[in-house]
């Protein structure tokens, strides 16, 4: 009996990643330009105009304080949006059947979409960081932690996007989670403030928000300031990756939303 070799899996995986990257580069005007414009507006309005009146936060100018959160916000949104829209549109056009009838194992399908989404998230993160340098100085406290958080956050939200797309039956369904779940979690995840400013109760609530750990750890990597223990934050990110991966792979093996 023949079985799929590592070489075969690598070819299938790299084909899928190449296809995903080609997709978001082909429609760059929709995928790469808007986040840059959005983040520039955040820097101008919140960082520059309002930030000057706020002064310092956790020992840094307000502009410097919000840069990591804004960069990560762009990363999260794009990693999620890439997978949810790509996977769902393939489901909608039924071109996902190209993959489903092929011998590509489910975990390779999952890895291909997640890496494709993470690639867009990371690319946007790099572009957003370059834009940020025009508004604030360059800071890098710990590049290892910064990159680890960047990659893990992209993966977590790419997995989230995949799960959303698996369940989605119509285009409305892929907008519900970003609008009603993702955006509130990002805004309440400490992008614009330190949770030390919140009452005790809301500080406790913030700890069940996964985005809080990402923003806090990412800010630590760049500025060296944090509201929580960094090892704990990274461990929480890994837990989210494991939980979401396990859930997504079960859905793929069951064929939920894909096979009759």
């Amino acid at each position: 009996m023949r079985s799929a070799s590592v070489h075969y899996k690598w070819i299938a995986f790299s084909t899928l990643v190449r296809k995903e990257v080609r997709r978001f580069l082909r429609i760059w005007i929709q995928t790469l330009v808007p986040p840059v414009i959005t983040i520039s507006l955040y820097f101008v309005i919140f960082g520059n105009l309002i930030g000057r009146r706020i002064g310092e936060m956790s020992g840094y100018a307000y502009m410097d304080f919000i840069v990591p959160g804004l960069v990560l916000m762009a990363v999260i949104n794009n990693a999620y949006a890439n997978v949810v829209s790509s996977f769902f549109s393939q489901k909608y056009q039924r071109s996902i059947e190209e993959l489903l009838v092929s011998p590509v194992p489910n975990y390779v399908i999952l890895a291909g979409f997640v890496v494709g989404g993470a690639a867009r998230g990371i690319m946007i993160g790099v572009v957003a960081s370059v834009v940020a340098m025009f508004f604030s100085g360059f800071h890098m406290h710990n590049i290892f932690i910064t990159l680890t958080v960047l990659i893990l956050s992209s993966v977590v939200f790419a997995l989230g996007g995949l799960i959303n797309a698996i369940y989605a039956n119509k285009f409305d369904d892929i907008n519900v989670i970003p609008t009603f779940v993702l955006t509130p979690l990002i805004y309440l995840g400490g992008v614009f403030y330190s949770i030390e400013l919140l009452p005790d109760f809301w500080q406790g609530v913030s700890h069940i928000n996964p985005i809080f750990y990402m923003v806090d750890a990412f800010r630590y990597g760049i500025l060296g300031i944090s509201d929580i223990n960094i090892s704990y934050a990274i461990m929480m990110l890994l837990v989210f990756v494991v939980i979401l991966y396990s859930y997504a792979i079960i859905l793929l093996y069951r064929g939920t939303g894909l096979r009759n």
Binding site: S5, H7, I11, A12, T15, L16, K19, E98, L99, P103
Partner: peptide, 13 residues
Amino acid sequence: DICVTQGGYYGLP
């Protein structure tokens, strides 16, 4: 690209 991608899914270099 449609054909080449499908080849990749079947392990063709």
